[in-house]
Structures are given as structure tokens and as C-alpha cells.
Amino acid sequence: MTDKLTSAQKDELMNQVQQQLAVANFQELLTKATHKCYKMCIGKPGSSLSSSEQSCLAMCMDRYTDTYNHVIRVYTTKLQNGLRGS
């Protein structure tokens, strides 16, 4: 037995880490979007979700995802260009 990981174990470990990071990222997005969209779309909670509330929630979730994608793109570019020089 050696204390080194085999190459297969290493690949497995890397895959696991990447998957868990992706899951955590998605959960964070969902949690944040749920709070924002609840606030935006459900003004007065009724006895069930109305169809207009549902379409507002769906559109809000899509725009929140667009916003996240836009923000991370701008943020990454700014960090790469701006931070090095300053």
C-alpha cells in the first residue's frame, strides 16, 4: 500500500469536488432567486398560487439567472483587467 492516490482515485476526487461545487452554486442561486422572486411576485399571499403569480415567478427566475451570468462575466473581466494594475 502506498499513501499516494492512484490516477483513477485522483480523477474521481476531482470529479466529486467539481460536482459538489456546481450543486452548491445552483443551490445558492435557487435560494437567492426564491427570496427575490417571492418578494417581487407574491404581494399578498392567497390560498393558492395564481397563474399570474406563476408566470411572474418563472420570468423572475429566468431574469435572475441572466443577471447572475451577466454579473459574473463583468466581475471576472474587471478583476482580470483592473486589479492587477492597481
Partner: peptide, 26 residues
């Protein structure tokens, strides 16, 4: 770290830049 910062910024900038209703697109 990048993703975590992006989530915080999205949260903050959503409040500042998005109005009362979600549009069809940004």
C-alpha cells in the same frame, strides 16, 4: 470564491437595477 462574490453582487445589483416586475429579457 468567485461564485460566492458573484452571488452577493447579483443580490445587491438586482435590488438596484431591476424594477418591480421581471421583463421578457434584460
Amino acid at each position: 470564491q468567485l461564485q460566492s462574490s458573484a452571488h452577493k453582487l447579483t443580490d445587491m445589483c438586482w435590488d438596484r437595477c431591476i424594477g418591480d416586475r421581471p421583463g421578457q429579457r434584460l
